[in-house]
Amino acid sequence: MVTCYLRYVIDPEKLTEFEKYAKMWIPLVNKFGGIHNGYFLPSEGANNIALALFTFPSLAAYEQYRNDSFADADCMTAFQYAKDTRCIISYERSFFRPVFD
């Protein structure tokens, strides 16, 4: 199991646009076999940082999702929406594995 952590630097004047973008991706991750753990938008503190977490059974499954997303019409619509609205300034992606008892 691998969880992808995305840290976005967003335009705080385009929070509404970013939230729409986030809501586009939740069902798409699920469509490709992942489990979306949610987006987390600014509340207190920094007004330009947002997070997302989603989990796939393996890094290979995540990589397959990434490859498939570039050929999926709904994913391309989401990518284009972010580009058109310029709600995302930058992002970084990291991967984590859970530790359980």
Rank of each mutant, 00 (worst) to 15 (best):
L41M: 13
A71P: 00
M1H: 07
Q64Y: 01
G45D: 01
F96Q: 08
F70I: 12
F96C: 13
H36P: 02
N47F: 07
L53S: 01
H36S: 14
M76Q: 15
E92P: 02
A73K: 10
A61M: 08
A22H: 04
A60M: 08
M76Y: 00
A60T: 12
I10A: 03
G38I: 05
A61G: 00
W25T: 02
M76E: 13
Y39A: 08
F18L: 06
N37K: 14
Q64C: 01
Y62I: 10
V2Q: 04
Y65R: 03
S94Q: 15
F95I: 11
M24S: 04
I35H: 14
G45R: 05
Y5D: 01
A50E: 06
F40Q: 01
M24H: 05
I26S: 01
G45A: 04
G38D: 00
Y8L: 07
V9R: 14
D68P: 06
L53C: 13
N67T: 11
F40P: 01
V2W: 01
D101L: 15
R93E: 13
Y21A: 06
A50Y: 07
T77R: 09
S43E: 10
I10Q: 11
F79E: 02
R7Q: 12
Y8R: 10
N47W: 02
P12G: 04
G45P: 08
D74W: 05
T85W: 10
G33K: 03
E13T: 12
P98A: 15
I26Q: 02
A82C: 08
E44G: 04
I26G: 00
F70P: 02
F54D: 12
L6G: 09
F95D: 08
R7P: 00
A60R: 05
P12M: 06
K83T: 09
I88N: 09
N47M: 08
G38T: 07
A82P: 06
R97G: 11
P57S: 15
C87G: 09
P42N: 07
T55H: 12
M24F: 10
Y39G: 03
A73Y: 03
E17W: 04
L6F: 07
N47R: 13
I26M: 08
R86D: 09
L6R: 07
T3L: 05
A50T: 07
L51F: 14
G38Y: 10
L41E: 05
R86F: 04
C87M: 10
Y21W: 14
D74G: 05
A60C: 00
N48H: 13
E92K: 12
K14P: 01
A71S: 15
E17M: 03
A82I: 02
T85D: 06
C4S: 14
Y21I: 03
F56C: 14
P57N: 13
T85C: 05
P27I: 06
E44F: 14
G45H: 00
A52S: 10
M1G: 13
F40I: 13
D101H: 11
M1N: 09
Y8V: 03
S90A: 15
E19R: 14
L28Q: 09
N67Y: 00
R97H: 08
L51E: 02
M1R: 11
S90E: 13
A61F: 03
F40N: 04
K20Q: 11
K23Q: 12
E92G: 12
E17Q: 11
V2Y: 07
N47Q: 12
C4Y: 09
F100I: 15
M24R: 09
L6P: 01
I88W: 13
G45T: 04
I49L: 14
K20H: 14
V29L: 05
K31D: 00
L59W: 02
